[in-house]
Design a protein around this nucleic acid. Structure first.
Lengths: 326, 326
DNA sequence: CTGTTAGCGCGTTCAT
DNA sequence: ATGAACGCGCTAACAG
């Protein structure tokens, strides 16, 4: 910057202003400075800039997994929307491990980000402390419940589970099952399972079978189906914690000669692209995936532009997409 | 930090040392300082630290898309491996837009990262300039070719296309097609398409049909199949630029009563989890996805630990996974 | 509108 | 082994 200033014949401060707040510099100097800094290939040092300015254009976003297409989608959306406003996403991933989350949150907070976005509502004490003592807006996304730390934007996973149970109960199903991926670690999937169990029991007086899958991929859907049928042969309907598991079960059903929905009804969750392309097409519950990313960005931007904007706690709801597997 | 120093009754420098290089401080003071800083919830300011230290623990990684499961997988892997060494990933995504890439690279470079990892070999002049003038190691991943900017770790997409063509040619196929997603933007998919076309033409003297799909999802695979059959009804084998497209085509084939591989042979690319679960199971080409992430991390770590480590240019190769759709 | 000056919070010499 | 002092590159006040 010193060199630019020297060549352009101005002071350091003017160079800084010309690049940071061009409207505060006379057009003549501005163009000259811009020209010189381009010619010299000058790139401002963000680190020094933020040290002096006490704020970075960084938004920390922490998700459990990057390969989970929901989070990948949210991140892709947020990246694009924030980029347009000059913010840059700092992405963290903890693999459903709250201790790892704690370390990542601490690391992110030390960068003085403009905002911090985390997934879900289950955090360690320390995470909570770090989050609440950081000066920036904090958003908990992808879940909904009472009293978020700061702002909450998502939907009730428990309600999603209940919706599935109610749907099955209305069809007069007595023997149902819920297959969930890593229910021990994924508290949102667990909330759906729990909502399903409670509501189904409440409405039908039958206790549904709950089965845990080891991951959210197709192969596990197939083997989970076998386990369900082994433990509860009369099962006539299964709800899954993800579309991929559901599709895996459909493939497996095909292999063992079960017809869908005749012999077995299948309900997915996610409404991924694949859901409207299988044969038969998959009935599924759609979370507000696009709405979440948009709402988070909009809210954070508002808070950043008008710091007195109040926190929010939004429930964006879920939707049953009726197709052909139920 | 000042507060910690005061409470512990030492100087700022000693606090810094106790936290940064504990072995340089007497055990007594060290434990006292650690205790105090924990009690006070002191979190060092990374920004100030890097300004003084002239290097950040940040690794910039730029991919075209986060929802593409290959890149998501590589990122997830890299996140975990780098995290274990105290590095933090800074992730960027440009949606196959080289101008956006240029801006992201510039933004990342201004953070003084420890390393910069980009996807592919096609970049704008400015990107190339920024990259080569940044002091850190630079890795171009997911593709292979002559003379990378600094280090290259990937495989030859052209060779992958040729492999598919050779495989079809050996089966005596005359009417073949290649369906690729966004071939206008994704230069790696285009390299596969081009390799396929050249090799198939070379071996059979038949020009294959090349069709572009608008995205890499299942729905597009189905409609691409219809387009292929419309333009070249005698097509007996199709290679796809992605497994999801291939599976979409399989579903569509099922709907229109085409049997696979009897009436139509299908070859995927990616070897996603779904490939070994469809009925019939999908024959596909597997890129070295896990090997890429690992190799990038290993190489970057080596360069960081021993700065005189030479650059590399690795071709990790692809593999044909023979299953039941060909 | 422009220049001068004072830090931002820490790592790192250099003395001691 | 410890402390004092400097400076990393820039932005924000202030003065002119």
């Amino acid at each position: 910057m010193e060199e630019v200033a020297k060549v352009a014949g101005v002071s350091l401060a003017t160079v800084s202003r010309a690049l940071r707040t061009p409207e505060a510099v006379s057009p003549k100097l501005r163009t000259r400075i811009e020209e010189v800094s381009r010619r010299l290939g000058y790139a401002p040092n963000r680190i020094a800039g933020s040290l002096a300015g006490a704020r970075t254009p960084l938004i920390g976003v922490i998700v459990p997994s990057l390969t989970n297409s929901f989070f990948a989608g949210t991140l892709e959306q947020m990246t694009t929307l924030f980029e347009a406003k000059g913010y840059q996403l700092m992405i963290g991933q903890h693999g459903y491990d709250t201790d790892r989350e704690e370390r990542i949150v601490a690391a992110f907070a030390s960068w003085n980000p403009s905002a911090l976005v985390v997934t879900g509502r289950a955090h360690t004490r320390n995470t909570l402390n770090t989050l609440s003592s950081s000066a920036c807006p904090v958003v908990e996304m992808w879940d909904h419940g009472e009293r978020p730390l700061d702002s909450g934007i998502g939907f009730s996973n428990r309600a999603a589970g209940k919706l599935a149970a109610r749907f099955f109960a209305e069809q007069g199903i007595a023997k149902a099952a819920f297959v969930g991926a890593i229910l021990d670690k994924d508290d949102r999937a667990r909330a759906r399972a729990e909502g399903f169990r409670q509501e189904f029991l409440h409405l039908t007086r039958f206790e549904p079978l709950i089965v845990t899958a080891n991951n959210r991929e197709l192969g596990e859907g197939g083997s989970a189906l076998k386990r369900v049928l082994g433990q509860q042969p009369e099962t006539s309907a299964i709800a899954f914690s993800g579309d991929m598991l559901a599709v895996g079960a459909m493939f497996e059903a095909d292999r063992i000669g079960l017809s869908i929905p005749g012999d077995l009804k299948i309900l997915g969750y996610g409404d991924l692209d694949i859901a409207r392309n299988t044969n038969p097409r998959l009935t599924t519950i759609r979370p507000p995936h696009n709405a979440i990313g948009e709402a988070v960005v909009r809210h954070v931007l508002e808070r950043l532009e008008a710091p007195d904007t109040p926190s929010v706690n939004l429930d964006l709801g879920v939707k049953l997409i009726l197709r052909e597997t139920v």
